[in-house]
């Protein structure tokens, strides 16, 4: 404590130790969820499943658009100088994840909108828009292009939400390249859980539940690798890992993220896809909530961690 007061109690060195409130974790969660939604939409288009009547792809892009708007609002609320937001779009800085994010988000809107046009509801298929929608749906090359753009942009969006944190070198807890992969997998699993929850076609529901089990398993492995990476690094990183291994974020991490968000849903969903239990809407809700708690733990624990 003495050291902290003597050497760091200075507004020029640590202007704010805890700068990020609820907005950033919510935005990172929504960003990951939208990224996952886009990848699933892209996969469905590339597989040609959009022609099936019961396809959830008729609403998925619209959900993505709505969530994106909420996420952008959270991000905007976090800005100190809200009226300067337009300046992000006057430049592109290759080495800045913030700049990457700003541009990716701008491209996500049209990509989702075009994906929605493929399965536009009949009552909106009128006039110019209707003709465009019909033309898109008839053209295999257009479908192919929309599918790949959504797959790629979704992946970039998901990874970017993690890189945004891991590029901030002053916080040892975030100092791992695995964060990009981890947040992408978490977003994918939350999106798969969401589709599992809302899909009205049984085949689709089962497919996404199976996919979700794979995503959750990979996420668990990535989490363990992430912790191993911190523990085998320098003293600051080991102290950062200790925040969730006995430190103040232990309980919420192991109970909220690992227990309720990953392990229990994985067990219940594995039993459900093999028809030993019923599918339940509570399980996907647990996965999605766990994905949100993961962002909160990472953003808060990261701001708590510091160089020794």
């Amino acid at each position: 404590m003495t050291e902290l007061v003597l050497t760091r109690h200075n507004a020029m060195i640590d202007p704010l130790l805890h700068a990020w409130g609820w907005e950033i974790p919510v935005y990172l969660f929504l960003g990951g969820l939208i990224g996952g939604t886009m990848m699933i939409t892209g996969y469905i288009l590339l597989k040609g499943r959009h022609r099936e009547n019961s396809c959830v792809c008729s609403v998925l892009p619209l959900v993505g658009l709505a969530l994106l708007s909420v996420g952008m609002l959270a991000l905007f609320l976090d800005l100190e100088h809200k009226l300067y937001v337009w300046r992000l779009y006057t430049t592109f800085q290759f080495s800045s994840p913030m700049s990457w994010g700003a541009w990716i988000l701008l491209l996500v809107y049209p990509a989702l909108a075009v994906a929605w046009l493929v399965r536009l509801p009949a009552f909106l298929r009128v006039g110019q828009v209707g003709r465009l929608a019909d033309a898109l749906a008839e053209s295999p090359r257009a479908i192919w292009a929309i599918g790949y753009v959504n797959l790629a942009l979704g992946g970039m969006l998901g990874i970017y939400t993690g890189v945004l944190l891991s590029s901030l070198g002053s916080r040892p807890f975030w100092n791992s390249a695995l964060l990009g992969v981890l947040f992408l997998l978490s977003g994918l699993s939350a999106a798969a859980a969401f589709v599992h929850m809302i899909a009205w076609d049984r085949t689709e529901r089962e497919l996404l539940a199976r996919a979700d089990n794979i995503f959750i398993s990979l996420e668990l492995v990535t989490l363990m690798l992430f912790l191993t990476g911190l523990l085998t690094s320098g003293a600051s990183h080991q102290a950062a890992a200790a925040l969730v291994l006995g430190g103040p974020f232990t309980a919420v991490f192991w109970v909220g993220v690992v227990g309720l968000g990953l392990v229990i849903p994985l067990v219940l969903q594995s039993l459900a896809v093999t028809h030993r239990t019923l599918h339940s809407a509570i399980v996907p809700v647990m996965v999605i909530a766990g994905s949100l708690v993961l962002r909160f733990v990472f953003v808060y624990a990261g701001q708590y961690s510091h160089w020794l």
Binding site: R202, H275, L278, H279, S280, A281, I282
Partner: peptide
């Protein structure tokens, strides 16, 4: 069955 959606009636 809102909470426990049946897989299908043949089950």
């Amino acid at each position: 069955d809102v909470l426990a959606a049946p897989v299908a009636d043949d089950h």
